[in-house]
Design a binder for these strands. Sequence first.
RNA 1: GCGCCCGUAGCUCAACUGGAUAGAGCAACGCCCUUCUAAGGCGUAGGUUACAGGUUCGACUCCUGUCGGGCGUACCA
Length: 551
Amino acid sequence: MSEFENHYSMKEYLAQIISESLEQFELEEPPEIRIEEPNQPDHGDASSNIAMMLAKPLRNNPRAIAQQLVDGLKYDEEKISAVEIAGPGFINFRFAEEYLFDELSEILKKGEAFGKSEANKGRRVLVEFVSANPTGPLTVGHGRNAVLGDTVSRLLEWTGAEVEREYYFNDAGRQMRVLGESVRARYLELLGKESDFPEGGYEGEYIRDIAQALVDEKGEELVEAEDEKPFKKKAEEEIFADISGTLKRMKIKMDSFFNEHSLYEEGKIEETIEKLRELGLAYDKDGAVWFKTTEFGKDKDTVLVKSTGEPTYRLPDIAYHANKLDRGFDLCIDVFGADHIATYPDVLSGIKSLGYDPDKVDVVVYQFVTLVKDGKPFKMSTRKANFVTLDDLMDEVGADVTRFFFLMRSPNTHLEFDIAQAKEAGEKNPVFYLQYAHARISSILRKVEEEYDFSEPAQLSLLSHSSEIKLIKTMLKFPESIANAARLREPHHVITYLNELASAFTSFYHDCRILGEEEKLARARMELAKATQQVLRNGLDILGISAPKQM
RNA sequence: GCGCCCGUAGCUCAACUGGAUAGAGCAACGCCCUUCUAAGGCGUAGGUUACAGGUUCGACUCCUGUCGGGCGUACCA
């Protein structure tokens, strides 16, 4: 097909020809042309509301404008088979079948690259996620964070960005001291010594395991230890090893780990305060250092350094974000739970004051996860150890299901993770519907390849059944669907799309056979099935979910 | 009190930065396995999009208010 086809989407093509026809109106400022897909298939494959937008400026009724626009429209009949005016003034387009067949062969040609786009080409993006301090195994709450962060990263990569995944942690805070004390207490306990379990300490069984490991390695050597440090160190090592294992199981690979402590070592914390002081945005009061957040519209100022000399988390957060931007990233995305949202404006104010562009920082906020067990919500706390770890969850339902469930809802809504539903191997579990469609195609291809000769090129124009056409059209929506999910940083759109695709395939499977059909038709349908499988696989790949050949 | 998020079918959720008749899955009911995987398909039923106003050619979507839920609002992270 033409050069044009390879570089521009149908939407861009339509916007182009509309804008050409629009010139006849000699508008001062031509409106943005948006092409949409009608809800009703009867209304065509693509639609524009441009005539309605112009009704007011042109003081004419939209249908008349639409008519004039359509009269002036020059389009390629190999792409567009019909243009209609409908309803209050919509202009509806129908795609030509030649176009569909050309695009289908494009999918096959592009293969695993089909769906990639360039909206973020050349951009260096840092995605910071998980960022759990090493105080215990990752829990279900961290799971949503981890899977969202990783999948948003994948989406950005599919739109051309160069992504670095970073895990930020702090091993120097109060939490970690308490952790060390907790291990020390268990250690002494194991050796039959007297011990005080710290108030608010970590009660999880894993603390005992770490203590046991220390007993095995060092015997009684640490009984006289001056402080909790050796215990903390061991705990950190063990817990990080555990966390890394969990992440790996979920197909998550971090590119870097950033220790908050390095900001202190490099003097970045001091530097940040000094700069804010110079700007008159930081001041001393009651032995603490305050950030003048009232300058940015908050009703109170915020403490940056406590009177104990210990900074609150806002200060290192600001320094950390400055550091990220210093490293030259074009965009920094933070993934965090709704409970952290309050700090975000302060961090933005902070880096803006320091002369950085706050538009380069973006955030994915997700609402809490409720685990539903036996039909009842299940409350969790790491400290109290009545949590369900991510590993437990994956033991129960598997990594694919875990990822899928975390991704199936908009980040902005509370997620109910029903373990019973997730465990269900069959009908109730939406993950398998997608994997099943993929596996089914593999199975068909295995059988069909024995029966037919596929050395000759397929004649795609033999595809004419409405289910076949529908399937092709659905596949063509994939790239835009990915781009959209990436732009909004909302992976659930990919799932919605894949469900639609799997469903379109299943209709095709139901209506059209391959095996037993005349060879030319079988060949064309096999290509269609192959393309479908490719798109399914690409989509599942973005979600980090496996695409099995057999189930 | 104030700020952010949410309220859509019995349940869990979609609805592409304002479009035409609001869609899926589960649950319910009725059909379909001598045909490439029934982990499937077809059909029925289910709605005043929390409520009340407003903006406009058009509102689940934007604005105002009310009610209900979640999370913040610490010299905790």
